[in-house]
């Protein structure tokens, strides 16, 4: 294994992305509030995006690989759709619990 730590932009944000993913995973497992849990899962998603973007990075002077970029853009749109549905579920559950449902 090759662990030579050259501190460049890719390494810094790759590690940061992993930590953000870990924070999100911990939140999704531990938090009881539904709204906060949705946000924790979104943290996981953004952390994974970090890894994809770092994988596409080719250094400051070179153009990056466009394919992972396209994948992440697709992921962002899918994530907003999933979030919208999750939030609608939360609103409906809240409305059912409070007897405001019709």
């Amino acid at each position: 294994m090759n662990f030579d730590m050259n501190l460049d932009t890719g390494t810094i944000f790759g590690v940061a992305g992993m930590i953000v993913f870990g924070i999100g995973l911990f939140g999704a497992l531990s938090v009881s509030d539904s709204l906060r849990r949705v946000l924790a899962l979104k943290l996981c998603g953004v952390g994974a995006s970090f890894i994809l973007i770092v994988a596409a990075w080719r250094g400051p002077a070179m153009p990056a690989d466009p394919v992972p970029h396209a994948l992440v853009i697709t992921g962002i749109v899918v994530m907003v759709s999933a979030t919208a549905v999750a939030l609608a579920l939360i609103r409906r559950i809240h409305s059912l619990e409070n007897g405001r449902d019709v």
Binding site: I53, A56, A64, I73, I76
Partner: peptide, 10 residues
């Protein structure tokens, strides 16, 4: 951060 990683579209 993604701008720093040459991913302005994302």
């Amino acid at each position: 951060a993604w701008v720093r990683l040459a991913a302005p579209d994302v």
